[in-house]
Simulated scan of single mutants.
Amino acid sequence: MVTVNLGMLHYVIDHVYGAFMHRTKISPPFFSRGWGGSKLELLERLINQLFPDVEGQIWPPNLIQPMWKTVWESKNACLREGVFRTPCDEQLLNALPPESHYARVAFLTPKFVSPQNMACVVHLAGTGDHTFERRLRLGGPLLKENIATMVLESPFYGQRRPVLQRGAKLLCVSDLLLLGRATIEEARSLLHWLDSEAGFGKMGVCGLSMGGVHAAMVGSLHPTPLATLPFLSPHSAVVAFCEGILKYGTAWEALREDLAAQETAMTLEEVRERMRNVLSLTDVTRFPVPKNPNAVIFVAATDDGYIPKHSVLELEKAWPGSEVRWVTGGHVSSFLLHNGEFRKAIVDALDRLEWKESSS
């Protein structure tokens, strides 16, 4: 009889998938065009403005006005899609590619329930999640719990992808920071719209992998209690690109050559250290503890080849009162097999919030 170590099997699946996606010539590596020059310097300044002085931030953000169209409706549910101009300020807008200036959202709601008696969760995109479908499938069964789903298409993804970009392989390091900063601004504006215009009684934000990092940041910065649900997420992009499997899909030599062209001679190890310093801007543990940390539930995988366990535990330590739930699997297998656990975490986190008082 052959005994199979399931944990090792899940870990191997992550590495096989990673080798196929990131070590073959199917698509170029991440950051094949270097660091991003002056855009990177701009973003380093803008991201540092996000923290630690949350109380000093401008709130509410500029109110967005999505233009809605109905995609389909059934007896009990309705799916609409909306388009709105990104609320990013002029500096960020000028840094974004033109294709990303307008955001797209899908909005799945139950019918015959007033928003004040419903919750809505904003779902943010993981790496490579270009469409609405996967996140709508995750949120769809929650309709019976009176939980609506709003799915944001990220900048640089889907119809917002720059012409020269292949798939999810961002061209410059600055694009990763820009994607994150714009996603945070758009998600915060959507939450403000759900609160002030739609009148939902509870709200949350979730995301898988990269989307989970962004969800954690949004939950941290929100001025009122919010259900915050990072799934299969690291505490920082440093972990993903410098420790996990994505390091094999990063154009380290192109990054070194970009620095050499700026008369900065570096070894590859020094280039990796510079990447660590730049991506430390995405460290969620630097962000404030959310207003209700009991409504923060991290779902992590036991044998994740992309996200090591220590990274998840750093998040739990930084936000006392938060909860970590472990599912058996790797990054890829958990993404495919554990939607039930993700949905339960959403329901449980929302249950830990108070209903908003009616303004009537």
Score class of each variant (00 low, 15 high):
350 L>H: 03
260 A>Q: 14
2 V>I: 15
71 V>N: 03
66 P>T: 12
124 L>C: 05
84 F>R: 05
111 K>N: 02
238 V>K: 04
308 P>K: 07
64 I>E: 06
18 G>I: 07
279 L>S: 02
329 G>Q: 00
234 P>C: 06
323 E>V: 13
208 L>K: 00
249 G>W: 04
299 V>T: 11
176 L>G: 04
177 L>M: 03
53 D>S: 10
299 V>R: 00
243 E>T: 10
136 L>H: 01
347 V>N: 02
236 S>F: 06
264 T>C: 15
135 R>S: 09
30 F>S: 07
161 R>Q: 15
268 L>S: 14
287 F>E: 00
140 G>I: 05
47 I>R: 04
109 T>N: 09
234 P>N: 06
251 A>V: 14
312 V>P: 02
354 E>C: 06
164 L>G: 10
30 F>T: 12
250 T>G: 06
13 I>C: 10
345 A>Q: 03
244 G>M: 07
2 V>Q: 10
67 M>N: 12
140 G>N: 13
4 V>I: 15
83 V>F: 04
95 A>G: 08
48 N>F: 01
119 A>L: 11
356 K>T: 13
162 P>F: 07
57 Q>F: 05
63 L>P: 11
338 H>Y: 01
212 G>M: 08
256 R>I: 11
76 N>P: 01
61 P>N: 03
302 T>K: 07
114 S>R: 14
286 R>V: 05
